[in-house]
């Protein structure tokens, strides 16, 4: 019931909001080949009052659409390495299973901070040492 109210309220908002969030997420996802979800999940939660779980699930569908479009462009320019992607995906599927099993035990601010720190180190290396 509460969800229904939230939904109708969200839907009454102007399409400008949808456009802004979608354009930004699509743009970043195309430019960096990732990161669309980082924008769209908080956007769904904060701007459209969606619950956390709904936001995550809905974001996957949205990003999937963006990804298919971006892949056309990447594919035409010849920058796709399908073989590498297959090996990575093999690890990814295994990792997904492990992640899902560990999720209940592992989630928490501490782990997020560790990965956040990892990202910062990688970021520095990419900007200054490459």
């Amino acid at each position: 019931m509460k969800l229904k109210n939230m939904l109708s309220r969200a839907l009454r908002r102007p399409y400008v909001i949808y456009a802004a969030g979608g354009l930004l997420a699509g743009f970043l996802n195309g430019l960096f080949g990732s990161g669309g979800g980082t924008v769209i999940v908080p956007f769904l939660e904060e701007c459209l009052d969606q619950e956390e779980h709904t936001s995550h699930a809905t974001a996957i569908l949205i990003i999937l659409g963006f990804t298919i479009v971006s892949l056309f462009f990447y594919g035409f320019s010849g920058t796709l390495d399908i073989k590498l992607a297959l090996w990575v995906s093999l690890g990814g599927v295994l990792g997904g299973f492990i992640g899902a099993k560990l999720l209940k035990k592992l989630t928490g601010p501490a782990i997020r901070k560790i990965f956040g720190a990892f990202m910062l180190v990688a970021a520095f290396r990419m900007v200054f040492f490459s």
């Binding site: 949808y18 969030g21 354009l23 699509g26 970043l28 769209i40 779980h53 971006s70």
Partner: peptide
């Protein structure tokens, strides 16, 4: 868990961003 009513308009408009970002 997927909210299609919200997903489709965002996806439809955002595709333009995806084209721009990819290019």
């Amino acid at each position: 868990s997927v909210n299609f009513k919200i997903a489709f308009p965002i996806m439809g408009l955002g595709v333009l961003g995806a084209v721009g970002g990819s290019l």
